[in-house]
Design a protein around this nucleic acid. Structure first.
Lengths: 215, 215, 215, 215
DNA sequence: GATGAATGAGTTTTCATTCAT
DNA sequence: AATGAATGAAAACTCATTCAT
């Protein structure tokens, strides 16, 4: 628990695929930004810290990103990509939309327990970068629609359901990351979310606490 | 709709009750801070701006508040108190816990429509000041327990329910304040929240869209 | 050792001698200033702290002293007075000028051991207030001349001797107050000073380490 | 006498040895700080004054020194190094430890006469920066031990002797810099110090007033 | 004589960004 | 492509002092 190993953002490029130098530096910079952002918070991170962490100078950072906002944005894209990539493998094992939605929520909530600083980064980026919110919303919307189509979810307003799923998950992440919550909190928040989507309480409870493939 | 009239924070002191000067200035400062914070956002507000808006010098601000965090905190307390005071009158007309919870959510969501900058301020303060979050959580917990006691809500975990109510409401506020949502969004988010608490969908829909006493 | 009891600066006024209120407040202020100055250092002490410590408001402080410099000056005078008063009783028991000079140096050096913050205050005031330096120099000059007259000291230049006595004593105080010195340091500095004044080494050593009436 | 030429801190870099820019600016800054510190005193100097004097902006100052304390410290190191460098050439001409100690004291005391503001800077820095005091103490200790080894000085306690040499010299510097003293004061303080170290009075007087290689 | 709210110039420090090398 | 010194506007906060009550 709470081993605080940040997910490896940048898989070492597959052997043989030597990236051009510019791209290599860019990835270094993003990896460094993620490390520092998640440690100190985005607002409290100064540009030179990113440069230091990446082992380059500040000039190089500005050579790749026009501004701090742009680097945050690049980090957001990287996180979103990573999340998508990590979620894919497990998904094939999940049969129902309910299970997929549950796995999605539990993933984020579980992340907040195992890596609070990573959760903090996600919350930070979500608060700053509207594009990131949009991407995440897109992910959730896809799963939501699947469940609706399959008749597992009954939802009056898709937009309202998205606000609920995303808002509740983030609120849960925040509180879990603060270390205030029991270990069962992730499952309980997930179950409550499922109920809001029309999943019968007993099933919601069962699916949410079932062992699920996480990241 | 978007009339942007900020709720009057400072009721004009009842005639005859001249406040001591220190208290008068303090209220001026808090009122000024609320005005500027909601216009620019807390982070983007500099202390001298508050001083200017209050018609005093920067020294006076620091005479009353030791730091920016302290003035944010004072603003948070004022907002929480205002919300409580505004909510009280309508509450007596509401018979069920369901109605009270619905009114609570709708109030905040409606605020985001009628006064986006006020909503922005609340979201800002909630993100910054843990005490404010705690206070709000306390408000919601009270209503939640009422509904549970009356058998209207069925909830596995109170903490999870709170995260859901608060998270979903805030997410809804944010999106409504951005002007992206249909006018019905407030009612729909509210209904979805009620379903998560175990209120039957039809009833949830009906209560959430019923005309409710707001602020 | 190092019990850090500050010498009582203001003896309670002898019974029956009720001081006028203005004078009473003034003494309170000086006593408060001494307390705070010796705790925090003169430069780091803000005027309102003095007012607080004296249990009055800042206005009252300025009612009695035109500026911070003036309060430092008043503190200097009080310290000088106190030193003179404390030194007098013991002096009658001391027969030679050598003994008197030794007692003088040991008093200050001993003070640095038993009350570092009091020593710090003296060094602070000496660095700031030229009048205080002058007064102290006067005290030392008197004893020096006594010893010269009695043929115990042989001194080419009185001014040089004064610089040496005062400089060496203050340097010793500083280092003792920092807690870096052995307990014998006070006696050894004193003996070295006496040698500079022409006292034979053995006698210097003996007198300096003899039990002497301190404050 | 009071020609107030500050010793050239920064020897013009030997031709051909262009320093890297960062180092050049750093030296400019230290030189500027020395100029302003010695004119106004360290405490009364604001960081922007240093920037102005060096012809750079305040940002550049903080680019090189993290805080005011750090620049004071850099100045202290520079002064100590300058002193050591200036003292070296003359030392070879001095045969005895007595002469070397005398030259050392006279150098500082003479400096106070020829350049009061330079003396003021040294006293200021000594009062603020403990590392500087330590360095100076080290210089004096070296010469003291030489004299002791050679049997010229007889000293009970090295620490006491150091306090005396340093304290008396600084007190002398202060008074000389204030312009209150006769021109002979430097020699007389020096002679008195030598007596404290066990040098016979006549010899002390003679060595101290002998023309000595100063800076 | 005491109060204490208000003043406001002044201080240190930060940091995103530029640009000559 | 990388460097990294320099920028300079702006921020938070301090504190001796004044003056109306």
């Amino acid at each position: 628990m709470n081993m605080e190993r940040l997910p490896d953002i940048l898989q070492p490029t597959p052997a043989g695929t030597r990236l051009p130098k510019r791209e290599r530096t860019r990835r270094q910079l993003i990896a460094a930004a993620i490390k520092i952002f998640s440690a100190r918070g985005v607002a409290a991170t100064a540009m030179p810290e990113i440069a230091d962490a990446a082992g380059v100078t500040i000039g190089t950072v500005y050579n790749h990103f026009r501004s701090k906002a742009e680097i945050v944005s690049a980090v957001a894209v990287t996180i979103a990509e990573t999340i998508r990539a990590r979620s894919a493998p497990g998904r094939s094992q999940l049969q129902s939309g309910t299970e997929q939605m549950a796995a999605g929520c539990r993933r984020y909530l579980g992340l907040a327990a195992s890596s609070p600083s990573w959760a903090r980064l996600i919350l930070d980026v979500a608060a700053i970068d509207p594009a990131f919110r949009k991407t995440i919303t897109g992910f959730v919307a896809t799963e939501l629609r699947k469940g609706v189509k399959a008749g597992e979810f009954t939802v009056d307003s898709e937009a309202a359901a998205l606000d609920l799923v995303i808002g509740a998950t983030m609120e849960g992440m925040r509180n879990i990351a603060l270390g205030k919550m029991r270990r069962t909190h992730a499952a309980q928040v997930t179950a409550t979310i499922l109920r809001a989507l029309g999943v019968p309480p007993a099933q919601a409870r069962e699916v949410a606490s079932r062992p699920l493939p996480l990241f």
